[in-house]
Design a protein around this nucleic acid. Structure first.
Length: 451
RNA sequence: GGCCCUAUCGUCUAAUGGUUAGGACAUCGCCUUCUCAAGGCGGUAAUCCGGGUUCAACUCCCGGUAGGGUCACCA
């Protein structure tokens, strides 16, 4: 190894929404650079004037910022460097590596082609070892539409040389571009080839490359932001598609990722994007957040939701909100689910009396009298003056009673009376959040209905 | 089709010649306060196939098979 400062670059093209695969490429470049105490450059590869758009360029900046991937300030844009490309093009032509070719078909009558010397090109890939590419049946490839309009292969190589890039870390789909780029670099006088590392692709469920055309919006990073995934979880997850530090730890902060990253341990096989694992991981991140942050996220979600109770005075009660949050926390994998659940009216019963269906108060084959008696007894226990404010003792009493009489016959009517739902948190949690007074009213109402 | 890359549970992976092939997600079962979650405990589940090399192969070599990538005046 030499002691030369390591310089890597992330070079996305602003021709579409920021892709998950791009995010992962950026991440690996970032981890590698940080780990090796090097520099990471951002370059906007906008040589294609037709397809490049400002909004996509901005999305690149926003996405990297959101993910927390920072790059050295220098941002190169291909579109602003046509002068140097022209010089290099002329140099290549002068030195007989390229020529202006008359075309019989295609958009332009003349293009610049690189003379293909044929034979085999060998290079070493940090991940895959030696790769040998036979280029004899490749034609003289086009490197520019004309002197003013370079194409990708020329632009990348010129820029990488200019900015002193040492390592090129990119997707596996670029392997077959490498031979051509090596040829151009050597023609431009580069003595030592770049170090290459071709990352395995991120695959969809069908094992093909994750692509917008084939797999839709799920390839766009913004989609995951909108769904309420945290950038830390996304980074952690993306890092682990195709790389693993060994060991059984799964949750890594970006700092820990940097510390343990080893490009030699990068997988060769493409990895399927498994959203279920992402969900699990994101939940772990939510659960690890400090209470204050959880509360903040939770309250923010409530403001987004289009719910009747949005301005309910109960939301001014901190204790109530904390209890609500607790119920929420064992249901969600991402914060945006709060909004979704609230909009589905999943929690209306916390704010207004439920509308009870008499038949649903009954547990299985239980009859009305039976259920009524059970509820009366429960009411008696929880309003007992001896046990005032000693919730645990009350619960114990209720449970004792329920165990004696049959848990279902006691707990089901109780829970249903409180929530009006067949599925809900357990009755004790409900009483805790609704408060003794409100709970009592709801139980009494159910008793009345059963008469 | 040419060229290239790849191959351990369904998925992400660990094990760099000697392990009862480990973990996580998912799944299944049981437990926990009736239901729904969450949680706890446990189970099912993998070295693509065939040849070598070796005392010994998931691991090294060769062949096959399968999958993927790429073959633009896109990047």
């Amino acid at each position: 190894m030499n002691n030369k400062k390591i310089i890597v670059r992330f070079a996305p093209s602003p021709t579409g929404p920021f892709h998950l695969g791009s995010a992962r490429t950026a991440l690996y470049n970032y981890l590698f650079a940080k780990k090796e105490n090097g520099v990471i450059l951002l370059r906007i590869e906008d040589t294609d004037k037709e397809r490049s758009e400002k909004k996509f360029e901005d999305e690149i900046y926003d996405s990297l910022k959101w993910l927390g991937i920072d790059y050295s300030k220098k941002i190169l844009k291909s579109s602003e460097r046509t002068k140097i490309y022209k010089e290099k093009l002329q140099e290549l032509i002068k030195n007989n590596f390229a020529y202006i070719s008359k075309e019989s078909e295609g958009q332009n009558k003349e293009v610049v082609r690189f003379k293909n010397p044929g034979g085999k090109i060998k290079f070493t890939d940090l991940i895959r070892g030696n790769i040998e590419e036979d280029i004899s049946n490749l034609k003289d490839f086009i490197i520019a539409k004309n002197l003013e309009e370079p194409l990708y292969h020329l632009a990348v190589v010129v820029d990488d040389i200019e900015s002193g890039v040492t390592h090129i870390i990119r997707g596996e789909d670029h392997i077959s571009n490498t031979a051509r780029q090596i040829l151009i670099a050597r023609a431009l006088g580069k003595k030592e080839d770049f170090q290459y590392a071709h990352l395995p692709l991120i695959l969809a469920k069908d094992k093909s490359k994750l692509s917008k055309r084939k797999h839709g919006k799920i390839v766009s990073l913004k989609k995951y932001k909108d769904l309420g995934y945290s950038p830390e979880a996304i980074l952690n997850f993306l890092a682990f598609i195709g790389w693993n530090p060994g060991g059984e730890k799964e949750i890594f902060s970006t700092k820990e990722l940097i510390k343990t990253f080893d490009i030699k341990k990068v997988q060769k096989k493409g990895g399927i994007f498994n959203i279920e694992k992402l969900n699990w991981l994101n939940r772990e991140y939510i659960l690890r957040q400090p209470k204050i942050e959880q509360l903040e996220n939770f309250r923010y979600q409530l403001t987004l939701a289009n719910a009747k109770f949005k301005n309910h005075q109960k939301l001014n009660n901190q204790k109530f909100v904390e209890n609500f949050l607790e119920i929420i926390l064992n249901k969600i994998h991402r914060w945006a689910e709060v909004e979704e659940l609230v909009e589905a009216r999943e929690f209306d019963y916390l704010f207004e009396k439920p509308i009870l269906d008499v038949n649903k108060i009954l547990w299985k084959k239980q009859d009305k009298n039976n259920a009524r008696e059970k509820l009366k007894k429960v009411l008696e226990i929880i309003t007992s003056p001896n046990l005032e404010s000693q919730d645990n003792l009350k619960w114990d009493e209720v449970m004792k009673y329920a165990e004696k009489e049959g848990k279902g016959e006691v707990l089901w009517p109780l829970r249903y009376a409180l929530s009006g739902r067949e599925k809900s948190p357990d009755p004790f949690t409900l009483i805790k959040i609704l408060g003794a007074g409100e709970s009592k009213k709801r139980i009494e109402k159910a008793i009345k209905l059963l008469t």
